[in-house]
Design a protein around this nucleic acid. Structure first.
Lengths: 201, 201
DNA sequence: ATGCGTACTGACCGATCGGTCAGTGGCTGC
DNA sequence: GCAGCCACTGACCGATCGGTCAGTACGCAT
C-alpha cells in the first residue's frame, strides 16, 4: 500500500483526474488508475460504479473547478484597458493553475462524434463564454459599431486556450516575443484587441 | 465484401483516417477499421505493419494534406485588408474542407504527455504558423511598433481553430453574429485585428 | 461477545485487444 | 501446366479489458 495522508477514494479520484486529463477516457484503464493510486482494481469499482461513471464524476468536478473561477471573476478596478489586461492575465493563470481541469474540459471539444447531446463540458464552456461576454458588455465602453462583444469574447478565449495547448511548442519557436509571461501576454493581446495592428492614420 | 471501386488498401486507410480523426488512437480498434472497411482484420495487418504504423501513416498523410494547402497559399491580390480577409477565409474553408486531417493534427496538440519529442503534427503546425507569419510580415504594411507578426499569426490561427472546434456549439448560441459564414467571419476578424475595438479618438 | 456496515482484496469472468499464421484462390510469367 | 507472388481469410494466440464476487479485516454500536 502506498503511504499517503489522503483516503483511498481521494487518491483514486485524483489519479483518475490526472490520467484522464493526460490520456483521455480510452487511453486509461482501470488497472492504470488502481496501480497509480496504490489500491486494488476491485477497490476502484468499490468507490465508482463504472469507468464511465468515474470519468463523468471527474469531468463534472473539472467543470465545477473551471467554472468556479469564472464566477469569482467580477468587476475589476481600473480603466477598460486595465480590466481587460487583468481578465486575460487571470484567464492565462487560471489555465496554468488548473491544467488538468482545463485539459479535461477542452479535450471534450476535440472529441466530436456527431452527437447532438450537449455534454457537461459543452455547457461549461458555453456558460463561461457567456460570463466573460457579459463582463465585456457590462463595461459599457465605447467600441466601434462593428464590434460584437460575443465575437471579441471568442477571440479572447480562443487565443488564451491556443496558447495553453501549444505551450510545449513555444520553447522551440524562433520569435522570442511569443514566449511571454502571462502579464506580458495579456498586455500584448489587450493592446491588439483594443487598438488593432494598424498605425493610426 | 463491401462493393467499392477503391482497392482494399485505399478503403482501409480512408476508414482509418475517418475513425482515428473521430475517436483518437485509443478509441479505435483494428476490428472497427476492418469492419468499416469491409475486410478481415488480418487483411488490415497485411497492409499495415501495426496499429501504430497505420496511425502514423494516416497522421503523416493528414499533415501533408494540411500543409499542402498552406504551401499553395501565396501572395494574394488587393490591399492589406483584402489579403488578410482572404487569408482568414481561406483558412476557415481549409479547415472545413479537410475536417478529418484538421482533427487528426489538432488532436495531437491536446494529447500532451510530457514527451520531449516533437511529433509530425507539432512540426506541421509549427511550419504552418511560420508560413502564415512570413506571409503577414512580407506584406510590409505599416503596423504599430508594438505589434509582432508572430503574435498576430497566433491570434489569427487560434481564432480560426477555436471556431472550427466549437462549431457544434454555435448552433445553440444566443448571439446571431457568431454564427457567421466564412466570409463574414473573416471580415469581422480582419476588422478587429486591423482596427481594434475602440472608437478612434 | 456479537452483529453489522464499510473498506478492501485476490481470484475469476467473458469479451475484446493487437497481432500471428497456415492456408486459399486468383493472376502472371514461363 | 505450373511455379511464384499477392491479396486475403478464419482460426487462433496471450494479454488486457471492464466488471463481479466471495471473503477478510476492522471499527463501532448494542
Amino acid at each position: 500500500m502506498v503511504c499517503s495522508t489522503e483516503t483511498a477514494q481521494e487518491r483514486i479520484v485524483a489519479v483518475a483526474q490526472r490520467l484522464f486529463a493526460q490520456h483521455g477516457f480510452d487511453g486509461v484503464s482501470i488497472n492504470d488508475i488502481a496501480a497509480a493510486a496504490g489500491v486494488s482494481k476491485a477497490n476502484v469499482f468499490h468507490h465508482a460504479a463504472s469507468k464511465a461513471e468515474l470519468y463523468d464524476r471527474v469531468l463534472q468536478e473539472a467543470c465545477a473547478v473551471f467554472t468556479e473561477g469564472y464566477e469569482r471573476l467580477a468587476a475589476l478596478p481600473g480603466d477598460f484597458r486595465q480590466r481587460l489586461v487583468a481578465l486575460i492575465e487571470w484567464h492565462a493563470r487560471h489555465l496554468r493553475e488548473q491544467p488538468q481541469a482545463a485539459r479535461l474540459v477542452l479535450r471534450e471539444l476535440t472529441a466530436w462524434s456527431e452527437k447532438p447531446v450537449q455534454g457537461p463540458a459543452d455547457r461549461c464552456i458555453g456558460a463561461n463564454l457567456l460570463r466573460v461576454q457579459r463582463l465585456l458588455e457590462a463595461d459599457g465602453i465605447a467600441t466601434r459599431p462593428t464590434i460584437d462583444a460575443a465575437f471579441v469574447t471568442r477571440v479572447l478565449l480562443a487565443v488564451s486556450w491556443f496558447r495553453f495547448q501549444t505551450q510545449h511548442l513555444e520553447a522551440r519557436v524562433q520569435s522570442r516575443r511569443v514566449r511571454l509571461r502571462d502579464r506580458e501576454f495579456a498586455e500584448q493581446l489587450a493592446d491588439l484587441l483594443l487598438h488593432g495592428m494598424l498605425r493610426a492614420d
